[in-house]
């Protein structure tokens, strides 16, 4: 039997209540490092981030590709004052005014990481790799203070694993065993973050029976998935996951 727990918007439970139950069960707490999936809004687990805001944990370190768009999701978490530090590749966007304001006011610490290094540091954490030498960033500001080594005639920078206490990601479907499939470029950081956190919480647009997902097509095996929030209501209406 799967150890994955399911939180479903059904039988009088709303999607928000299901997400709140999952966040509560995840053990997320103040001071933790939270990995948040998505690239812009594609794959962004908005229902889970909203639940994290309601949960109230603060002094968080958030790892995500961006630092929030507009006033919702990650931007709302920042605006609520719950985040101490952001680790991301691309904070500055046309609609990142919440981040921009907090950063300029000195209320947020920022660690900028090249996008591929960000993904690989989390992959390393999830795969039990104790660090890796990578040519990206060699000779730039982002390599300052880091150990370097010339490998095959090329300078490489030592990058360390990036681990989360909790990962919040979005996927397209889960099966009852907890296996996940994604949809198009909404996959992005989800599969890597699922491996890199002690506890992974996933919001999906529907849960199917065991056997309904082709095992050859499963992207994230259930072993990485602790909590699934099914946003599809009993009326069959599907929410974006």
């Amino acid at each position: 039997m799967s150890r994955t727990q399911f939180h479903t918007a059904a039988g009088g439970t709303t999607a928000a209540e299901a997400a709140d139950a999952a966040l509560s069960a995840s053990g997320v707490a103040s001071g933790m490092t939270v990995l948040v999936g998505g690239f812009g809004m594609a794959g962004m687990p908005v229902a889970l981030v909203d639940a994290l805001i309601r949960h109230g944990a603060d002094e968080l370190t958030v790892v995500s590709n961006n630092a929030g768009n507009g006033d919702t999701g990650l931007a709302a978490l920042l605006a609520a004052g719950r985040v101490r530090k952001v680790i991301c590749s691309f904070p500055r966007q046309s609609d990142s005014w919440v981040f921009d304001g907090l950063y300029r006011a000195g209320r947020l610490e920022l660690e900028v990481v090249p996008q591929g290094t960000l993904a690989e540091r989390m992959r390393a954490a999830g795969a039990g790799i104790g660090g890796f030498f990578c040519p990206t960033g060699a000779g730039t500001l982002l390599a300052e203070g880091k150990e370097t080594r010339v490998i095959d005639g090329r300078e490489h920078v030592l990058e360390m694993p990036l681990r989360g206490d909790v990962a919040l990601i979005g996927a397209h479907r889960a099966d009852r065993a907890g296996n996940l499939v994604y949809r198009k470029t909404a996959r992005n950081f989800g599969p890597v973050m699922a491996t890199a956190a002690a506890t992974t919480v996933v919001q999906v647009g529907g849960v199917v029976e065991v056997g309904a997902l082709d095992p050859e097509a499963v992207v994230t095996p259930a072993i990485y998935v602790d909590h699934v929030v099914d946003l599809r209501s009993t009326s069959g209406e599907e929410h974006a996951a």
């Binding site: 590749s89 691309f90 904070p91 500055r92 966007q93 981040f99 921009d100 950063y103 300029r104 920022l110 900028v112 990481v113 090249p114 996008q115 591929g116 290094t117 040519p135 990206t136 960033g137 060699a138 730039t140 500001l141 982002l142």
Partner: peptide, 12 residues
Amino acid sequence: IPAVGGAMDLAT
């Protein structure tokens, strides 16, 4: 506000 995205990875 520094924002590197994938530029360093692509350049390398």
